[in-house]
Amino acid sequence: MSGATLAAPARLPWLPLAIGVLVLLAWDSAVRFAHVPQVLLPSPGSVASSLWQAAPVLARHALATGGAACGAFLVAVAAGMVLAAVMMLSPLLNRLLYPNLLLFQLLPKVALGPLFVVWLGIGLPSLFAFAVFVSVFPVAVGTLAGLRAADPNQLRMCRAAGGNAWQAFWHVRLPTSMPYVFAGAKVAATMAFTGATVGEFISANAGLGYMVMQAQARSDTPLIFAALAVLCLLGAALYGAVGLAETAARRRWGTRR
């Protein structure tokens, strides 16, 4: 019910779009007529031209960041699911790990970024490890919640039919957990890009975050905007891909939720 309200009716997709265009126009005319300095707020036109001129460089850096983030995302999803499954199947590990997992959620994980540089040096390995580190937790917590959300009647039914614990896990728990896994994966998609970019802010020699810091040092605000726009687009694309995968999975595993 609340979800429907939050998602806003799809009946009027043109309205938010029109507002977006309006904001863009207002932005442009504000820069043009109110003489806002380019360093503070470049006009959409100059961002576009910066995007066009720097396209080859942007593409190279985007590939670095996008590759690191997507790879980290995949590793985080796999590792998070395995971690959750292990905790589900081993009560002892669960007792030991779960409260700490929750505590970890409280820790400002991004603050640990510089440590990764100390450990793994400047470059892809530390960036990658850091991105995995910040994105693995949402998947693990989400999956665990999902595995625990299995309908007790279905589990009972499975046992009554002579299924063992493994079959109950595979046929009941896993399908039920899918919506939760995807919810976690969506957060992880955003976090993977956050991790990669923040990692690049801290210290890197390539990537969009690195580019942004360079542009900032040169006060090249149009380039900052251009690089961030590319970054947002990449993040949204990964998020969208997870959404598509969810739709496919839902089709495959029936209409649950």
Binding site: L231, C232, G235
Partner: peptide, 8 residues
């Protein structure tokens, strides 16, 4: 929400 806001 989908955009990596922290990168901004």
């Amino acid at each position: 929400q989908i955009v990596p806001k922290m990168a901004l």
